[in-house]
């Protein structure tokens, strides 16, 4: 029976494995001479590919910026220490700005509410406007505190995300998810983005969504379709309103950890 790690040797040689899987392959290589030989051959291909790209000059001013960076000792960063992933850091890093803005807005609102007395009526509309954000914030905070919640940043597949980013916080147990997209390319009026759960190769629609003029979207999803042994999340561009099945290749994909 073939060791499953044997199937990962090509990706290991191509530098496409995350650290945990790379470590498994290294253990395997250390104990299998045939695998070592194959890896050695593939490694040469990988090295050849390093040099195969079309050459481009760095942007104007890059050398000056490099000199400036290296000339200032304080600019040379110390070795970064590995920080354990914490839910609070997710919030700070991913949703921090929005979270802080909402908190600031709420604080200001409460101060105004307390101090303005008879002007409450003037603020009623703002209360209404803030309420959905408050509720969403409560949901997000609760989701982040739940066991099994994980962050799934989606990888740009090169099919048209154009530098945008998509992060999804998902809890496979509760089925609740939170999608944050930034700087996605705008769509035409007859197109939508569609989020899919691909469970054991079968795509199931999770959400159809659009983006604002900045290419951003922040979406709460209450339900996760049935998961399988291997679960991916993918985003495709579909006709407005979404499709029953994906009709285009995904612009981004990510893996939900088992």
């Amino acid at each position: 029976m073939t060791d499953q790690r044997d199937e990962l040797i090509e990706l290991y040689a191509l530098g496409a494995l995350p650290a945990d899987e790379a470590a498994e392959v290294e253990d395997y290589l250390a104990s299998n001479s045939q695998a070592q030989q194959r890896y050695s051959q593939y490694r040469h291909i990988s090295q050849a590919l390093l040099w195969s790209v079309e050459q481009r000059d760095p942007p104007a001013g890059a050398y000056e910026r490099f000199r400036e960076r290296m000339a200032t000792p304080s600019n040379v960063p110390a070795k970064p220490s590995q920080q354990p992933t914490q839910r609070s850091s997710w919030l700070a890093n991913l949703f921090g700005r929005r979270y802080r803005l909402m908190a600031t807005a709420l604080t200001l609102f409460l101060v105004l509410l307390g101090g303005a007395g008879g002007r409450i009526w003037q603020l009623q509309n703002e209360v209404g406007a803030l309420q959905p954000l408050v509720e969403q914030n409560k949901q997000l905070t609760a989701l982040l505190g739940e066991s099994g919640t994980q962050l799934v940043p989606l990888a740009d597949t090169g099919n048209g995300m154009a530098g945008g980013t998509i992060n999804i916080i998902v809890n496979p147990q509760t089925g609740q998810s939170y999608l944050r997209a930034s700087h996605l390319p705008p769509l035409t009026a007859n197109q939508s983005y569609q989020l899919w759960l691909i469970a054991d190769g079968t795509p199931q629609s999770m959400e159809v969504f659009g983006v604002d003029t900045s290419g951003d979207a922040l979406i709460w999803i209450d339900r996760l379709p049935s998961t399988g042994a291997e679960n991916l999340l993918g985003i495709t561009v579909e006709p407005a309103g979404g499709s029953q099945q994906p009709t285009s290749n995904p612009v981004a994909v990510g893996t939900i950890d088992a």
């Binding site: 199937e7 090509e10 990706l11 191509l14 530098g15 496409a16 494995l17 995350p18 899987e21 990988s46 590919l49 990888a155 740009d156 597949t157 090169g158 099919n159 691909i198 190769g201 291997e230 991916l232 993918g234 994906p246 290749n249 995904p250 994909v253 990510g254 893996t255």
Partner: peptide
């Protein structure tokens, strides 16, 4: 091969990307 080498995608992610 390009999706693996230049994008760092896993087998599963390449499968999802290419269908």
């Amino acid at each position: 091969i390009e999706l693996a080498f230049f994008r760092g995608l896993s087998h599963l992610e390449i499968a999802a990307t290419t269908g």
